[in-house]
Design a protein around this nucleic acid. Structure first.
Length: 580
RNA sequence: CGGGGAGUGGCGCAGCUCGGUAGCGCACCGGCUUUGGGAGCCGGUGGUCGGGGGUUCAAAUCCCCCCUCCCCGACCA
């Protein structure tokens, strides 16, 4: 493609409404243009990337045995009323009416239409399994569209739907999709991890999110840089790396007897001593007062467990993972005490509670609390803390459970290497739906005995347009984008520095020749044949981000070479004209 | 939804406090010069200042209503 003919206008200034790098660069480089909040036009360069991502997804879906179809964007509201998701999505759906005032929506997803389609064609166990997918625009009227392509109201999504006769079949279909997703994100060069996730509005049981590591992600997740371990922050657990032989067995949630017998009090700890600490209800000032690290203080979080008072203990530099606490005391209901609770209970000195609080019926602690030190903690009396509170002597623990929220550097439960807590962009999500939709939409099959059963469904989504942004987030620098070869709009950016000197004609004809030769060789070449200054061409080439730049100039031609620069690494070398 | 900020040629901004009929940079068009990291000079095109209403001789500017867009968003004792 000759740039003199390409529909492209790059911007020198960052667009005022773009904050994140991918949005900023995609707009500046003329890949996309905003039409409305969360809605973008794809210009030629951007469209080529979008198509390449789509093609990779298509290849992997086909390879996994799924078949491509194309459903309408506009769907009858009646289907959504039947599945019960009309109310669930509520204002999230773009709604419209036809001239007869029949309700429609712009598809936020397509379980209903797809299930209805399959149910209408197939009715026998002999027909199953089947897996259909489409690459189609989806519409969600987000409360707050943001970050450009990362959370748009219109986005391109690959959605696949599997139909099986039973759960075993579903699990097999699920596994195929899961593996295909792995390959898709690998081919897109993303740093990603599959994470077991909570199921949201879509329902169903098992599901995994594929998270691309990125600072601008909207969800925190924990992942191991050394192995495949990954989890969302609520579900994440750490490996037990503390070195003390006193560490008790972790009971994993059930309320069991304390195993403190094996615990040894801190050998040198003097008796617990009370100190006057006025106006220090938080960890930081207390640690400063006693001149210790916050990890030497003991944080006591009060919670209500089935009407009784519980205390959760973690080191002062850690935070309690509320989900982990809830899981540890399940099935009993648990909630953290609120300011109102503290206001209502005068006996609870907020900020000065210690693990030996007499009214606590359950004391649950993170294994880190087993470290044999004298803790600094609340004195159960306003404006007072104690030091040298020793486990087994001054307080006891009823339940041991992993309670702390994971932070970067904690040990991986699989391999012991450091975990990393990062933000992630959800680029894919796979669900085992079960029979939920088949039942509400009456999508059944007949088994070998002539009996009717609902089909067992799975659904699988990939954010195609979101991947484009996620890849830019991972692959860019201050000058622009750096496309992986698999997704770059063009393989090579050929730059002709013709100027108007004596050599102009020679440079132009040589660049033309190279353009033809490379194109004939099957390469996609973006050829900067514009009458622009060298600076403009170099800056645009870096901004647009093709993997390789080839520079044809009078200087090089005199020596029979063109210069080559690898965009991502900045490496430069020379290529002899005879070789091209 | 709550809080904060912003709408002025295609893009980025100034002008608004103190009303007087719109300006700068980039981009675009023409000319001359220039050509290895966003060139220089000269001359141009393009905006009913988000929309509606009001005040006034006069409104981008003051007042009222509406729309759009951007950013942030409970709690760790």
């Amino acid at each position: 493609m000759r740039m003199s003919e390409l529909f492209l206008r790059t911007l020198r200034d960052d667009p005022a409404d773009a904050d994140v790098d991918s949005h900023r660069l995609l707009v500046r480089a003329g890949y996309i243009r905003k039409v409305a909040a969360g809605m973008y036009s794809w210009l030629p360069l951007g469209h080529r990337v979008l198509r390449k991502v789509g093609q990779i997804v298509r290849e992997e879906m086909d390879r996994a045995g799924a078949q491509e179809v194309l459903l309408p964007i506009t769907q009858p509201l009646e289907l959504w009323q039947r599945s019960g998701r009309d109310a669930l999505y509520g204002p999230m759906m773009f709604r419209l009416e036809d001239r007869k005032e029949t309700g429609f929506c712009l598809a936020p997803t397509a379980e209903e239409v797809m299930a209805t389609l399959v149910g209408g064609e197939y009715s026998s166990y002999r027909d199953l399994p089947v897996n259909l997918y489409q690459i189609q625009w989806k519409y969600r009227d987000e409360l707050r569209p943001r970050f450009g392509l990362l959370r748009g109201r219109e986005f391109l999504m690959k959605d696949a739907y599997s139909f099986d006769t039973d759960m075993d079949g579903l699990r097999a279909s699920y596994k195929k999709m899961y593996d295909a997703y792995y390959r898709v994100f690998e081919r897109c060069s993303l740093t990603f991890r599959p994470v077991e996730a909570q199921s949201g509005e879509i329902g169903g049981d098992v599901n995994h999110e594929f998270m691309a590591v990125a600072a601008v992600g909207e969800d925190d997740f924990v992942w191991c840089t050394a192995c495949d371990y990954a989890a969302n922050v609520e579900a994440a657990r750490r490996g037990h790396t503390w070195k003390h032989d006193e560490v008790p067995a972790v009971t994993d949630g059930s309320l069991t007897a304390p195993s403190v017998a094996s615990l040894r009090p801190h050998a040198d700890a003097p008796a617990m001593a009370k100190h006057h600490t006025p106006d220090m209800p938080g960890i930081a000032p207390v640690a400063a007062f006693f001149e210790v690290d916050a990890s030497r203080t003991l944080k006591c979080i009060a919670f209500d467990i089935d009407g009784e008072l519980g205390l959760a203990l973690v080191p002062g530099d850690r935070e309690v993972n509320e989900h982990a606490l809830r899981a540890a005391v399940a099935p009993k209901p648990m909630r953290l005490l609120t300011d109102e609770d503290f206001a209502a209970r005068r006996d609870l000195p907020k900020g000065y509670i210690g693990p030996h609080f007499p009214g606590a019926s359950v004391v649950i602690a993170d294994p880190a609390v087993a470290e044999p030190i004298g803790w600094i903690t609340g004195a159960n009396e306003a404006d007072h803390h104690v030091r040298d509170a020793v486990l087994g002597r001054d307080f006891t623990v009823v339940v041991w459970a992993d309670l702390v929220s994971i932070v970067s550097g904690d040990a991986c439960p699989n391999c012991g290497q450091p975990l990393s807590v990062d933000r992630g962009i959800e680029v894919g999500h796979v669900f085992q739906l079960g029979t939920k939709y088949a039942e509400s939409l009456d999508v059944n099959y007949t088994d070998a005995n002539g009996e009717q059963h609902p089909m067992v469904m799975g659904c699988y989504g990939i954010g195609i347009s979101r991947i484009v942004a996620a890849v830019v987030e991972e692959f860019h620098d201050e000058n622009g984008m750096m496309w992986p070869v698999a997704l770059a709009p063009y393989d090579v950016h050929l730059i002709a520095l013709a100027g108007r000197g004596d050599q102009a004609e020679k440079v132009t004809s040589e660049a033309d020749r190279l353009y033809e030769a490379l194109t004939d060789r099957g390469m996609d070449v973006l050829y900067d044949d514009r009458e622009a200054s060298p600076g403009v061409k170099f800056a645009d080439a870096d901004l647009l981000g093709m993997p390789v730049q080839l520079v044809v100039g009078a200087k090089g031609l005199a020596r029979g070479i063109v210069e080559r620069k690898v965009r991502a690494t900045g490496e430069r070398d020379e290529v002899s004209l005879g070789d091209v």
